[in-house]
Design a protein around this nucleic acid. Sequence first.
DNA 1: GACTACATCCAAAGCGCTTCGGGCACTTCA
DNA 2: TGAAGTGCCCGAAGCGCTTTGGATGTAGTC
Lengths: 322, 322
Amino acid sequence: MNGYPEVNAETRQRVLDAVRETGYRPNRAAQRLATGRAGSIGLVMPTADGIESDVHFGEFLAGLGDEAVKHDFHFVINPSHPEEEVATCRRLVASGNVDALFLAYMREKDPRIAMMKTLKTPFVVHGRSIGVPTDYPFLDIDNTGAFYEAARLLAQLGHRHFALINGPDNLTFSIRRRKGTVRALAEHGLTLREDCVQHSQMTDEHGFRAMERFLRLETPPTAVLCSSTVMALGAVRAINQAGLKLGADISLIAHDDVLPMLKPENFMVPLTTTRSSLRAAGQRIARRLIADILGLEALPQQELWKTDLIVRASTGPAPVGK
Amino acid sequence: MNGYPEVNAETRQRVLDAVRETGYRPNRAAQRLATGRAGSIGLVMPTADGIESDVHFGEFLAGLGDEAVKHDFHFVINPSHPEEEVATCRRLVASGNVDALFLAYMREKDPRIAMMKTLKTPFVVHGRSIGVPTDYPFLDIDNTGAFYEAARLLAQLGHRHFALINGPDNLTFSIRRRKGTVRALAEHGLTLREDCVQHSQMTDEHGFRAMERFLRLETPPTAVLCSSTVMALGAVRAINQAGLKLGADISLIAHDDVLPMLKPENFMVPLTTTRSSLRAAGQRIARRLIADILGLEALPQQELWKTDLIVRASTGPAPVGK
DNA sequence: GACTACATCCAAAGCGCTTCGGGCACTTCA
DNA sequence: TGAAGTGCCCGAAGCGCTTTGGATGTAGTC
C-alpha cells in the first residue's frame, strides 16, 4: 500500500482490492506514531467567552482548506485564550500531533516566533512581527505600502484632514497600516491626529461608532482610511446618517480582503480599496507548509505580496474650503 | 501522572516536578493508540476552489472553541469538497483520529446520519435532516417556528405580498424556514409566489440582487423575510436605492445569528429579527460532545431551541392600497 | 514467627502501523 | 554445477503511551 518498489504488481493489486472490499483505513495515530508524520497542520484559534470572533479567520481557513484537501491533509485547531497563545503553541507542537504550525495574529515582538525557532517543527507566519529578527518564514501583504499609497492618493486629491479606522492596536498589520498612512501624510506636510484614529476589532459597529465620533469633531476629516470592508460598512452608514455624500463631502478607502460575503463594488457608492485576497493567502501558506512537510518543491521562505489599489466612487477631490 | 490511586503522594509529586522541569508532554498519537481517545472533535469543512466561504462557519467554530478550550480538547478539521462529505466523514472516523464527530449543513435525507449510526463514534448534528428517522442526536433551532411567527406578524400588519430571501435550497434550515413562511401565509389565505423566493449563499450580493429583482416585479412584495443579516444588508441597500422607506413602504424581518461583525440593531433602520446565537449553539454542541466522550453528565440528546422574535423599526403596517 | 493484608512500585504486553533485514526461490554467469 | 545476483515476500523491531498482573516490602494478626 505504501508504494514500495519491490512488490509484484499483481500482489499489490490483490492488496488494493482487499482494501477496497473491507473499507480499510490505516489508523492515523498508529501511522503517526510509526512515522512521526500524519498529514496535519496545526493552528491556534484565539477564542474565549466574550471575545468577538473574527470574520477574516473563516475566510482564511477556507483558503487553507482548499489546498489541504488536495493533499489529504487536515487541520488540528487548538482553541486558546489569546493571552496563552505561546503556551498553547508549544503544547500543540509537543503533543506530537501536528507536522507543521501556522501562526497568525502577529503582535509586536511576538514571542511565538523565537519559541518556534527553537523547535524543529516547520512553521509559516501569516503577517510579520516587528522588533524581532526577520529570519523566519512568513507570508505577508505590504500593509505599509497599501496604506501609504491609499493615503497618498487622497492627499493628492487635496485632502488635508485624515482619519484612520484600524484593527486592534496590538496587531502588526494595524501598526504597519498606520505607519504607511503617517508616512504618506508626512510627505505632504500633514499629520494624523490622535483623535482621528480608531483601533478596535473589525466589526460594523466599531466602524460606525468611530465615524460618528470623527464627524462630531470640530474639524472633521474629509478622508478616511479603513482596515476592513466590514468596518467601512459602519463608517459609510455614519456618513449617510450625517447627511454627507461619500466620494464628495468625504472620501473613503478601505482594505478589501475579498470576503465573498461583502464586496466593496456593491456598496451604494462603490468603495475604493486596497485589495488582497485572504483566501489566496491561506491557499499559499497551506501550499508552502505541505511542500515543506512532504519535502516537495522548495518554495520561497518569505513573501511580501503587493496589494492592488482599485479606485471606485468613494474617493474624490477634497471639498473646497476644507 | 494519570491519577492512579495507588501511588504515593510523594512519588507523584516527584514525577510532577520532573514533568515541569523537562517540559514533558505526552505524545498524543501514542496516547490515542494506547487508549483509543485523545481529546479531539472532528468536523468536515465544506470547501473547494470557487466555493464561497460561509461567515457563519467561523462564528460557530468560535463557539465550539470556547467550550473545547475548557477541557483541553482540539478539533480535527477535514476540508472536503461538499459533494464528498459522506466519504470524508467516514474516512475521518475510520482514521481513528477523532473521538466524536460534529455534522452540519444538513440536507434532505442526509446520508451522513445513517452512516454515522452504523459506527460507534458519538456525534451531534447541528440542524436536522428531513425524511429520515429522527432518532439521532441533534441541536437545532426552530426554523419553521421562527419564520412562521415572523411571517404571521407581517400578515397581521396587513401585508399581502411576501418575498423570501433564503439560504441554499438544499439545506434543511432553508427548507424549514420556507415551510414556516408558507404555513403562516396560508393561515391568512396568502401564498408565497415562486418568483418572490430566492435561494443562494448568504452574502450581501445575493441579498441585493434578489431584492432588486423583487422590486422590478409588477406587484412587488411589501414584506420580506431574510435568512441572514448579511443578506439583509444587500436587501436593504436595494430598498434604499429604489427610494423606498424600510419599515414604511416595505417591511423586512431577518434571521439574526448574532454575528459580532454585524448587528441588526445598528442598521440605519434597526432590523426586526428572529434571533438565535450561533456561537451559543457551538458551545452547547461542544459541551454535549465532550460530556459524551468523557462520560460526564448525561445531557439531552435532542434539543430544539426557540428563537426570539425581536421587533425593531424595519417592520410596520402594510402601506395602504397595496 | 509464620501468615495474611496492604500500600507501592515496576515490568511486560499491546495499541496498529512502518521499516528493514533476512530468507526463499529462481535466474544468470563463469 | 556452484557462486553470485535478482525479485519478491515476510517477520521482527520499535514508535510512546496505558494498563495490568505480579513483585516487593512493610505492617498487622493469631
